[in-house]
Amino acid sequence: MSFLQNRLESVAPWLYADSSAWTAIGLFGTALFGSRFVVQWICSERSGRVVVPPVFWHLSFWGSLISLLYALHLDKLPIILGQALLPVLHGRNLWLLRKR
């Protein structure tokens, strides 16, 4: 049973087209989001203390946004809900960094 497909397919048919490109998009979003921890770890090791560099928030935002897009493609409510607020939260952190 679809959650959003009945509502969105008429305006975004590409979102529900089955292709290997969607798998690549999902993997890219996951890799981007996961790479933030590697970047944060490397920066912390170089500093000798815990550091959260600005690039951490950029990777978080873009990785979560791409993962949300992939979740919408999958059209599974638990996955969509799990991803829905992440771009907002990470985007807010980027906004706060910009103001600083």
Results as ranks from 00 to 15, higher is better:
S20P: 05
L81E: 02
Y16N: 01
P13A: 15
S60T: 05
W57R: 04
I79K: 04
A21H: 13
L32A: 13
A84N: 00
F28E: 05
C43I: 09
I80N: 01
H90A: 15
L86G: 01
H90P: 06
W41P: 06
L77E: 11
V38H: 12
R92S: 12
Y16P: 00
E45K: 12
I80R: 04
V51H: 09
R36P: 09
L32K: 05
L8C: 14
R36D: 11
K76F: 14
P13K: 14
V55T: 11
L68K: 03
L77S: 03
S64E: 08
S19M: 05
G63L: 06
H58G: 00
N93R: 13
P87R: 09
L59S: 01
S10L: 08
D75T: 07
S44I: 03
V50L: 07
H58Q: 00
F28R: 07
S60I: 06
G26K: 14
P78M: 09
K99W: 04
Q40S: 13
S19D: 05
P53E: 09
L68Q: 10
G63Y: 02
L72H: 12
S60K: 03
L8P: 09
D75A: 03
D75R: 00
L74Y: 09
S19A: 05
T30Q: 15
N93E: 13
N93Y: 13
G34F: 13
F61S: 08
R46N: 14
H73P: 13
L8V: 03
I66N: 05
V50P: 01
A21Y: 15
G34S: 14
D75P: 05
K99V: 07
W22M: 01
R49T: 12
L94W: 00
P54F: 05
A71G: 01
D75Q: 02
S19G: 08
V39F: 07
P78Q: 04
Q5Y: 02
P53C: 10
P53D: 08
W41C: 11
R100V: 14
P13W: 15
N93I: 11
M1V: 04
L69V: 14
T23W: 06
H58W: 07
A71D: 00
A17I: 10
V39Q: 14
W57V: 01
